[in-house]
């Protein structure tokens, strides 16, 4: 984890590295907006991202692609201090 100097500003949000493809919808969907087809699927590359993180008493910046060569378990959860 790259250590980050933290000031008093609002923490920046995560950035997702790879651009998601804009996919034109077929004819019957004309008139609707273009959609981001960015659904993650098994057997396909995990989209890269970089985000602020906390670990071992330090604030830092974590990038998924820094873990290439290792297995990664990515766990989302509803929120700190929730019950389950």
């Amino acid at each position: 984890m790259k250590e980050l100097k933290i000031g008093c500003g609002k923490p920046t949000g995560a950035t997702v590295g790879e651009k998601t493809e804009k996919v034109k919808l077929p004819d019957q969907a004309q008139g609707r907006k273009e959609m981001d087809m960015s659904v993650v699927r098994v057997g396909q590359k995990a989209p890269d991202f970089e985000a602020p993180a906390y670990q071992d008493g330090k604030f830092g910046q974590v990038k998924l692609s820094d873990y290439l060569g290792k297995w990664v378990i990515l766990c989302f959860y509803p929120g700190d201090f929730t019950f389950v």
């Binding site: 890269d48 297995w71 990515l74």
Partner: peptide
């Protein structure tokens, strides 16, 4: 405004193997 309990196993090539 929250994230669901999602779990992704990603292999050393960066490929998602399980969701």
């Amino acid at each position: 405004g929250v994230e669901m309990r999602g779990r992704f196993i990603i292999d050393p090539d960066g490929v998602v193997q399980a969701i």
